[in-house]
Design a protein around this nucleic acid. Structure first.
Lengths: 195, 195
DNA sequence: TACTAAACGGACTCACCGGTCCGGATAGTA
DNA sequence: TACTATCCGGACCGGTGAGTCCGTTTAGTA
């Protein structure tokens, strides 16, 4: 589609960009990540612009619409989740690996954009694509765990998505910060999928 | 506090109300219930007024603000959930009863206001009070189930709230209608709490 | 039927948000 | 330093939703 960092404004690949423009783009992305993490993707563009120390115009010069900005941030977020799962696939103890993958995700999931990423569907082909990849890898992990007898045979990766996304949103919205609580609920979800 | 049907506009108990006013109040409540169930509590007052066949003014004559209307509807919703739990407490098979209580709630939980009721906190003393009662009854049910060995000793009622609320929101927002899917996810949650 | 207090509804205000636009500032260049 | 294409910020626009207000309608009464 469009090289790295998709969902951004069209731009002739040849044309160089001014240094301040590059800097500002990064400030916008960082600010959007922070604001969406704290207040969810409902947060407004003005808030992001202010946090980034730029004007609204600068945000819209980099992203054609709020949806595109949201999609770009969520793609990054989902890619990190994907990496957690990929790491877990390396392990040779699939049961443990499954647990660790969720714990890894949970450790960074006080971020409200994570559950948003799970539920935000159909508005960005790019995001849908990344999520499909996550699903594929999660299914692979689940299958490995099934074979080793660590995972109930009748369950599907999609169901893990629903349960795990559910607690992430609930805890995130409650502003839960204690990692122990996150681990505890993650374990409950893992237990739901034991044989 | 304020007798039955709290969260409503202050009103001299003596003063009789015109028949059309009473009728309209009921129409507003019914419409709000339907709209919040279908679109979540983010839905607007205009939509509710239209569905009720009245003007916005009539809505505000019965409820001082949108938050009060939301609270009133959520209180009703949570009271029904409370009743499910109370019914389950009657049973002499606590393990099964726990499962049935959640299934009972799930059966009506495509209603988006249910998870909203679980997460909407601190904006209505009345709602907080009802939720505290639900928690108390749920804790009682959980304790019974622990004693009979149907429930893991280390888990708390609050955790049930989080997991169950999580799937209700996820499935509700996904527009899931199939009762089989609801039962399936509810069972996963129940399994998470087995000893 | 005539009267009036209660209730009605929708036009209106106010605040906010997504998105556009343009006069002014500045990075890069010679 | 002088020049200009690029980029900047925030004023502005259109739309939406919460909440108010008041001229009009109607339920209840005699």
């Amino acid at each position: 589609m469009k090289g790295p960092g998709v969902a951004e404004v069209e731009r002739d690949a040849e044309a160089p960009r001014r240094a301040d423009a590059v800097r500002n783009r990064e400030k916008v992305i960082a600010a959007a990540e922070a604001v969406f993490a704290e207040h969810g993707i409902e947060a407004g563009i003005p808030e992001i612009a202010e946090k980034a120390g730029v004007g609204k115009g600068t945000v819209y010069r980099n992203f054609e619409s709020k949806d595109e900005l949201v999609a770009a941030i969520l793609v990054r977020r989902m890619n990190r989740f994907d990496q957690d799962i990929l790491d877990a696939l390396e392990s040779d103890d699939p049961g443990l690996a499954f647990r660790e993958a969720l714990h890894g995700a949970a450790a960074r999931a006080s971020d409200l954009s994570f559950p948003a990423g799970i539920y935000w569907a159909g508005r960005s082909p790019e995001l849908d694509h990344v999520k499909a990849r996550v699903r594929k890898h999660l299914a692979k992990l689940v299958n490995k765990a099934k074979k080793s007898g660590d995972f109930r045979k009748d369950a599907k990766a999609e169901e893990v998505f629903i349960l795990f996304g559910g607690i992430c949103r609930a805890l995130g919205e409650a502003g839960e910060q204690d990692p122990k609580v996150w681990r505890r609920h993650t374990d409950l979800v893992v237990d739901a999928f034991r044989p």
